[in-house]
C-alpha cells in the first residue's frame, strides 16, 4: 500500500488478526453453557438409544406376563410394564423411534418452510401476500386439533406420521425464512449483481441461500425440538405406533393410568427423557443463534 494512505491506517477493520471463522464460532458456542450441556445430552441419548441395546439386552417383542408390573429391581433396572417388557430397554427402544421420527419431521418441516418462505420473500408482491395468508390460516388451526382429526380417520404408519408432522409444522419456519429472504434480496451485493445483468437464479443460489444458512440451521434445530415434543403428544392422541413397537410418547400414555396406582416408573423415565432431549435441542438452538447472531424467535 502506498504512502498516500498512511493516515488511513488508523481506520478500524473488523477482526483483522483474529481467529478464523470456525474457531470463533466454536468459542462463541462454548460460552453458552446451557448449549454445551444440551449438546452433551443429545450425544448421550443418541448413544443410549442406539448403542444401549447392544449392552443391555432385553426382549421388546414377546410379552412375559409373569414379570408384569414389577418395580425397579436388580434384574429390571427400571421395572416392567403391564405386559412384562423391561422399562429401561423400552426406553432405549422407544427412544430410537422418537428421535428418528422427530429428526425427520423437524427436517421436513424446515425444508418445506424454507422453500415456501424463500419463494414468498423473493418474489414479493401479491404472490407473497397470498402465500403468507395461507401460512396465517395454517397457523390459525392448532396442530393438535388437526392431529386429533387425523387420528379419528386412521392410524398412519411411521412414514406417514413423519409426513403429517412435517406438514403441520412448516408454518413457523416459513415466516422466519421469508423475513430473512426479504432482507437479503435488498442487500447491496444482490442489487449490484442484478444491475450488471445477473439473473435471479444466480442471485438466489449464490447469495440469498448461502447467507440464509445460519437462519435455516437455527430454525431447523428448534423444529427438531418441537417435532420430538409433538411426537410425544401423538400417542396420547391415538396416532402413535402400534405395540409392541413404542416411542416415548407411547410409553407415557400407556403409563398414565398406572400413575394413580403409584407405578411411577412407567412414566417418569420416559417423561424425563422427552423433557431432556427437547430441552437439549432448544438449548443448542439458542447457542447456535448466539453464534450466528440471528434475530427472531
Amino acid at each position: 500500500m502506498s504512502a498516500v494512505i498512511q493516515p488511513g491506517k488508523a481506520e478500524f477493520s473488523a477482526q483483522v488478526a483474529g481467529p478464523t471463522g470456525s474457531r470463533l464460532a466454536i468459542a462463541r458456542f462454548s460460552r453458552n453453557r446451557l448449549a454445551v450441556v444440551g449438546l452433551a445430552v443429545v450425544v448421550f441419548f443418541v448413544l443410549f438409544c442406539f448403542l444401549g441395546p447392544l449392552v443391555y439386552h432385553t426382549d421388546q417383542l414377546h410379552t412375559a406376563l409373569s414379570e408384569a408390573n414389577q418395580g425397579p429391581s436388580g434384574s429390571h433396572l427400571l421395572g416392567t410394564d403391564a405386559v412384562g417388557h423391561d422399562e429401561l430397554g423400552r426406553l432405549m427402544y422407544g427412544g430410537k423411534v422418537s428421535l428418528i421420527v422427530g429428526l425427520a419431521a423437524g427436517l421436513l418441516a424446515t425444508v418445506i418452510g424454507t422453500v415456501w418462505g424463500a419463494v414468498a420473500g423473493y418474489v414479493g408482491g401479491w404472490v407473497d401476500a397470498v402465500m403468507m395468508r395461507v401460512v396465517d390460516a395454517g397457523i390459525a388451526i392448532p396442530a393438535l386439533f388437526i392431529l386429533l382429526v387425523i387420528s379419528a380417520i386412521s392410524t398412519p404408519d411411521t412414514f406417514a406420521l413423519v409426513i403429517i408432522l412435517g406438514f403441520v409444522s412448516w408454518l413457523v419456519p416459513s415466516r422466519l425464512i421469508r423475513a430473512e429472504t426479504l432482507s437479503l434480496k435488498n442487500r447491496d451485493y444482490v442489487l449490484t449483481l442484478r444491475a450488471i445483468g445477473g439473473s435471479h437464479t444466480r442471485a438466489i443460489t449464490r447469495h440469498v441461500l448461502p447467507n440464509s444458512v445460519s437462519t435455516i440451521v437455527v430454525a431447523a434445530t428448534f423444529q427438531v425440538a418441537d417435532a420430538i415434543l409433538l411426537v410425544a403428544y401423538v400417542s396420547y392422541l391415538g396416532l402413535g405406533v402400534q405395540p409392541p413397537a413404542t416411542d416415548w410418547g407411547g410409553m407415557l400414555s400407556a403409563g398414565l393410568t398406572a400413575v394413580y396406582s403409584g407405578r411411577w416408573w412407567l412414566i417418569l423415565p420416559s417423561g424425563l427423557a422427552v423433557i431432556l432431549v427437547v430441552c437439549a435441542f432448544n438449548a443448542i438452538g439458542d447457542g447456535l443463534r448466539d453464534v450466528f447472531d440471528v434475530r427472531g424467535r
Binding site: L34, L252, I267, G271, L276, C279, N282
Partner: peptide, 11 residues
C-alpha cells in the same frame, strides 16, 4: 423455563 417449555402439557 427451558424445562417447562420442553415438557408435554399432559405430563
Amino acid at each position: 423455563s427451558f424445562v417447562a417449555y420442553s415438557a408435554p402439557v399432559f405430563f
